[in-house]
Structure formats: structure tokens, C-alpha cells
């Protein structure tokens, strides 16, 4: 059986809110070491990869590997019944046809229990090879979100150009064009606002901006986001979840025919 108590229940709410526009149904794979999820969007352009290690939970128990087939919209609805400060406990027995969710506020004067039906999801899994990225950008997650939204007002596509001077986001549409350039920050100041660029070679790629806007809904999970690019491979957009996991998105590029 699975019994996983998440002291910071809000983390689960944020994760599910961040992926709900991309993925409708997903398998949550539970093992002794934690919970993982891998799912593609229906158009097979974007992939979500979640890792929540057992350290995120206290306690965490999973005797045998369990796959929980979850309708994300249903989970969003049930999680709306929890408070932001609630401790959330997930419980499932074998065979996993239901998932129990228990919400407890810090006061412990209220316990709410919900049970959601699970589904059989025929999920194809992709092997994501280890990639030596040519350009890795770490920047404030809020800045990334703002830039993506701003670029979306002009075009469906955004071009990201990483050089040693900085990273430039640009969009060109029927109404006009625009760009935002972030310069590489100093090495002394390493606050969340600092933009750092690790470059093997200058890299430019173009992506559908609507996916990036969706990914950036993860902003509340982490102060910083990491963008990793190697042309012509998919870009990695990563949000760390404290020291106990990550939410990664892979996005296939757009290319000139």
C-alpha cells in the first residue's frame, strides 16, 4: 500500500495547477523512492516529468510499486477542498482503483477525507536521453513568466537566443515585433533575480509560446527556472521543488522548413 503524508500540501496543489492545462490524464507511479509522473500533451509537443522523492513526505511508505491513473481535472477539484496550509495524506491500496486524500489543517481540529476513482491509463513512455546542453540559463521564474506572457501578445512563437552576453527573447507577429534581453548577472550577487548563462556555444531556438506560458504556471513552486537548450533538440524547462524533486517540461522546437 501507499501512504504518503505531505506536510506542505500546497506543493501538490501547485504542481497539479501547473500541469492541468497540458495533461488531462496521467499515471502517478509510486515506488519506494517516491512518486514520478511522465505525460505528454495531446498534440505530442510537450512532455511533463515530475519527481517527488520520498523526502518530500513525512512519513512515506510504499511497499509495492503502484500506478495511480489520475484524471487531473478531478484531482484539481478535490484539492480545491483543501486549505493552503493543510497537510495532505495520500493513501492507496492494491489494486489501486481509488485514491484516498486526507486534508488536515495545522490546528488539527478538522479532518476532511475524500476518495477519488482511479482510471486505467494507457500511457506511452518516452526515453529521455541525458543531454549535454549547449546553453543553460537560470533566471527568476517570475521574470520568465512575464516575458512569455508579453511575447504571447505579439506572436504564437518566441525565439530564444543565448549568447555569453545574455539571453534574448523575441517575437514577431502581424501587428509588430518585440524583444526582451536579460544580461548575465554578476557572479557576486546570486539572488533569485540573477540571470546566469552557462554556454558551450551560442544557441538559438524557436518555440510555441503558449506552451511556455503554461509551463510558467509553475512559478509559485520555485524562485528560479532553468532553461536548457541544444539545437535542434527539445528544450528543458525545470522548476526545482525544494530539495525533494523537480517539475520538468520538455518542449519540441519549431524549425524553418
Amino acid at each position: 500500500m501507499l501512504e504518503a503524508r505531505l506536510p506542505q500540501g500546497a506543493v501538490l496543489k501547485k504542481i497539479v495547477d501547473a500541469i492541468k492545462e497540458i495533461v488531462s490524464d496521467a499515471n502517478f507511479d509510486c515506488t519506494d523512492s517516491g512518486i514520478t509522473l511522465q505525460a505528454m500533451d495531446s498534440s505530442h509537443v510537450a512532455l511533463v516529468s515530475l519527481l517527488l522523492t520520498s523526502e518530500a513526505f513525512d512519513p512515506y511508505r510504499c511497499d509495492r510499486n503502484l500506478t495511480l491513473g489520475i484524471n487531473i481535472k478531478t484531482l484539481v477539484q478535490i484539492l480545491k477542498c483543501s486549505g493552503n496550509d493543510d497537510v495532505i495524506t495520500l493513501r492507496a491500496e492494491e489494486p489501486a482503483d481509488t485514491l484516498a486524500l486526507v486534508f488536515e489543517p495545522p490546528s488539527l481540529e478538522r479532518i476532511s477525507e475524500y476518495e477519488m476513482k482511479l482510471m486505467d491509463i494507457d500511457n506511452e513512455r518516452l526515453e529521455i536521453p541525458d543531454t549535454a546542453y549547449h546553453a543553460e540559463i537560470t533566471m527568476a521564474a517570475s521574470e520568465f513568466q512575464r516575458i512569455c506572457r508579453d511575447m504571447q501578445t505579439l506572436s504564437e512563437s518566441v525565439t530564444i537566443e543565448a549568447t555569453k552576453e545574455g539571453v534574448k527573447f523575441s517575437a514577431e507577429g502581424e501587428l509588430g515585433s518585440g524583444s526582451v534581453t536579460l544580461k548575465q548577472g554578476g557572479s557576486i550577487d546570486s539572488s533569485a533575480e540573477t540571470t546566469t548563462i552557462e554556454l558551450v556555444q551560442p544557441t538559438t531556438q524557436t518555440f510555441s509560446v503558449k506552451y511556455l506560458v503554461n509551463f510558467s504556471k509553475s512559478t509559485s513552486l520555485a524562485g528560479q527556472v532553468r532553461l536548457a537548450m541544444t539545437a535542434p533538440l527539445p528544450m528543458l524547462v525545470e522548476y526545482k521543488i525544494s530539495d525533494c524533486g523537480h517539475l520538468r517540461f520538455f518542449l519540441a522546437p519549431k524549425i524553418d522548413d
Binding site: 509537443v45 518516452l126 526515453e127 512563437s157 527539445p234 519540441a252 524553418d256 522548413d257
Partner: peptide, 14 residues
């Protein structure tokens, strides 16, 4: 013409 690539062109099925 700008074409949207699919993930399957880069990642293999397990």
C-alpha cells in the same frame, strides 16, 4: 514556413 516538431522525433518509446 515554420514547422512545429513533435517529441517523438527526438525521444524513443520505452
Amino acid at each position: 514556413v515554420v514547422l512545429q516538431c513533435l517529441l517523438r522525433g527526438f525521444f524513443q518509446n520505452v
